[in-house]
Each structure stands twice: as structure tokens, then as C-alpha cells.
Design a protein around this nucleic acid. Structure first.
Lengths: 226, 226
DNA sequence: AATCCAATTATTGTATACAAAAAGATTGAC
DNA sequence: GTCAATCTTTTTGTATACAATAATTGGATT
């Protein structure tokens, strides 16, 4: 008898709204320091202030906005320093996932990684950057899952999602997609051979913002600010 | 002229309540699966349901409770597997902090580490375990800060605080406090000599739940369940 | 014209009211 | 006696009302 985990499809409105506001912030609809007007949001979503406020409380905890008592809730777009810090942690988490996955990964997951890589290659050939980003994300999330640590997987996913808007920028550099592909293959090889250390260091290098990637990130932030 | 960062001392009631409920959960006042009754909590804190609900939303995001739509909010005490996963991530984060701190730590912070260690020793001699836990915490938080990565520091602190109730258990093993002290000294030495890898591995080993620590943790969980 | 103060207006935070759904109790059939 | 269906109660989720605080505006004064 199969065990069925039925995901609660019915979500609370406040939760849906929290996601939507999050997307608005990620999409750059708000600048750093903008106040999130409860009444305007309530009008926008066609609800009262109550679910809006519950949604905002969630965003406060997840760090996307800052709340000043009796003043309101303000969006907090990370500046260059915080972004570098977040990428540094992301690299560390990916390395952690890689080290664990090297010991724990299943054959099926290895096949899935190769599959994702293959589709990445095709996307590059076709110049389809959207497809590339999608498969790239699949590649990394497989590794998170194969860490065999659900808590780590969750944390890595959270940060990955939060950095998504900035990751696209990273890949716009000339030849960066090709190099990224080579790194992916190196990572898979290390995982296949259960080379713990190598898998970790390959992922660290792959994700870390160093050298040219650093300058690229800073430059793109300046452009976004204009 | 000194720059004064005035921390908003006035906190929202909902935030204070969120902290208090969090403490109740940490203190073991609720078992896994218990429903957090909004009305009872409202009575307890002498407020209406509104601030209670805002507080609960925060706890949902921080992962302490799970919300089932139209059913309520239920406390989610981590089971043995999730605990091990969390300790595994904690060890990884501490190692990350250690590697970075080895490159970035200040002389002043090194002195503070030695100071904390010294007070740890004294606490052991006096059999004052409360003082030991306090200084041990100070020791680790200094390292988080000296990673030079505020985002990492914050994440490490969050997880550290969440694991606090279970860490005490770890140190009850015979001779564990002495061994822990030796490990602290090894960590400081690596940091002093800017030995990146060694600082990381020493912290990993220090925090990871392995061997006897594993059995101790599992056993204590069983006792708590009785 | 610039600045300070008072009155007005917005906005947040909390309480209460109400609708919808779930849990629990009660009755009735078998 | 057990099970099922219906009715009642409880509880969640949302809207609205109101109080307290912050922002704003419009003079009055220098």
C-alpha cells in the first residue's frame, strides 16, 4: 500500500500574498527603503489589512523587509557587501552539500545530474538562456537533495531562491556559460567517484564570487541603481 | 563625535509575544504536535487574538511550528533525525566561520577567545556548569563574528540558539567538558596561526555529533520522551 | 523668507465582529 | 451496541472599528 502524503493544496490567503509580495520585491518592483503600504497592498489584493499584515510579518522574519515599530515595513534590498556575504555562505552550503552528496548520492540522482547537464549544453547551443537557468537550477537542487540532509537541503534552497535574481547576472559574462558547464562536469565526476573533498571544493569554486565574477556583480549592481 | 546606533527599545507586542512563545517551546512546555490555542494564548498574555496570530505567523516562518490551514498551528519539536541534520549543518557553519576567521580574526578577538577559554576552565574547576555554558557560548559567538561575514554570523547564531536546549545534553558526558576545553585550545591555536583548514576541521570535529556524542544525544531524547 | 508650533490627517497596532470551516455532540436507524 | 447523519459548538480566517502614535499641513512669529 502506497503511503500518500497529501500536500495541503488550500493555502491561506495571507501565505499566497506573502509569496506574491516576495516576488514583487525579487522582481525589483520596490527599491531599497520603500515602505510597503498596508492599505495600498490591501486594495491591490482586494482584501482587508489583516491578511496583508500577517503576510508582512512573514517577510520580516525571512529578512526581506525590515519593520520599524509604529513606522511601517520597509523593503531591504541587499547592498553589495551583503550580497557578497550571501554568496560566500551559499558557496559554503553548496560545498557542504557536495561533500555529503559524494558519500550519499544515488545512481538515479547521478543520472539525473548528467541529464540536467546535457540539457544545459543544448540550451547553450540553442542560445536559450532561460532553459539554461532552469536546468542549472535543477542541477544544483539535485545536489542539495542528495546531501541526504533535509534540513540542509531546505536552507540551501532558501538561500538559492533568494539569490536567484543576482545569479542571472553572473552568467552574462562572455564564455561564462561554457566555463560553468565544464565545472558542472567536474562536479559530477567528483560525485561519481565519491571524492568528498574534490566535490566540495569544485562546488565552492563554482559558486563563489571571485575574480572576474566579483567585478561583474558590482558593475551590474551599479547599472541597476541608475 | 560618537556615532550612536539607538536600538529601537520599543518593540511591538506581537514580537515580544513571539519571543515568549518561542521560549515556552524551547523550555519544553509543549510536546510535539500540540496545538497552540489562539484564545488561550490571548488570555495568557492579556491581549486579543490579533497580536497572537501575528506572533504565530513569525514562528511558522522560523520553523518552530507548522501551520495547517483552517486547523491551527502546531508545535514541531525536531525528532532525532532532524536534530542530527541540524547539528550536521551547525558543524558545517562553524567550520565555515572558522576557516574565514582564521584569515580575518583580530588580535583583540583572539584575546577575547583566550579570556573566554580561561573562564571556561575556571567554571569546570568550580563545577559551575551554568558559567561553563555561558562562556562556551561566548567563545563560539566570537568566532561567528570574526568570520567577517555578518550574514553568516546571523545564520550561525540563529541555528546555535535553536540548538541550545540540546547542546547542554551533549556536555553531560563524563569528561566531555575537559575534552571540549582541549578542543577549544586547539581551535584558538589554529586561528592564531591563521591555519585555515585546521581551524575549520577542528571546529567541525568539535561540533559534529559523532561516536559517543551520538549515543548520548539519542539516549537523552528517549529520556525526555518518557 | 525661514522656523517653530498647533491642528489635521495618515498610519500603525489592537480589539471586536462576523463568516466559513472543522471538531464534537446528539439523535436515530439498523 | 454500533454506525451514520445531522445539529451544535469551537476555531480559524477575514473584515471592520477604534485608539495611539507619527507625519503633514497651515498658520503665526521672528
Amino acid at each position: 500500500m502506497a503511503i500518500v502524503i497529501l500536500k495541503n493544496m488550500e493555502r491561506r490567503r495571507a501565505d499566497i500574498i506573502a509569496d506574491e509580495i516576495e516576488n514583487l520585491i525579487f522582481a525589483g518592483q520596490y527599491s531599497d527603503g520603500d515602505r510597503l503600504d498596508e492599505i495600498k497592498l490591501a486594495d491591490r489584493f482586494g482584501v482587508s489589512r489583516t491578511p496583508i499584515r500577517e503576510a508582512l510579518q512573514k517577510l520580516v522574519v525571512s529578512g526581506l523587509v525590515a519593520q520599524i515599530p509604529r513606522r511601517g515595513v520597509f523593503v531591504r534590498q541587499p547592498g553589495p557587501i551583503e550580497l557578497l556575504e550571501m554568496f560566500e555562505v551559499m558557496a559554503g552550503l553548496e560545498a557542504m552539500c557536495g561533500r555529503l552528496a559524494a558519500q550519499r548520492i544515488s545512481d538515479k540522482a547521478l543520472a539525473a545530474l548528467n541529464d540536467a547537464n546535457h540539457r544545459c549544453s543544448n540550451a547553450i547551443k540553442n542560445g536559450d538562456s532561460d532553459a539554461y537557468y532552469l536546468e542549472n537550477e535543477r542541477f544544483h537542487k539535485i545536489i542539495y537533495a542528495q546531501s541526504g540532509n533535509a534540513f540542509l537541503e531546505q536552507e540551501a534552497c532558501k538561500l538559492h531562491d533568494r539569490l536567484r535574481p543576482y545569479r542571472r547576472v553572473q552568467l552574462r559574462l562572455r564564455g561564462r556559460m561554457d566555463q560553468s558547464m565544464r565545472e558542472h562536469e567536474e562536479i559530477v565526476k567528483a560525485l561519481e567517484n565519491a571524492e568528498t573533498t574534490k566535490a566540495g571544493s569544485a562546488l565552492l569554486k563554482h559558486v563563489a564570487v571571485q575574480g572576474e565574477k566579483f567585478h561583474n556583480l558590482i558593475a551590474s549592481l551599479k547599472m541597476a541603481a541608475e
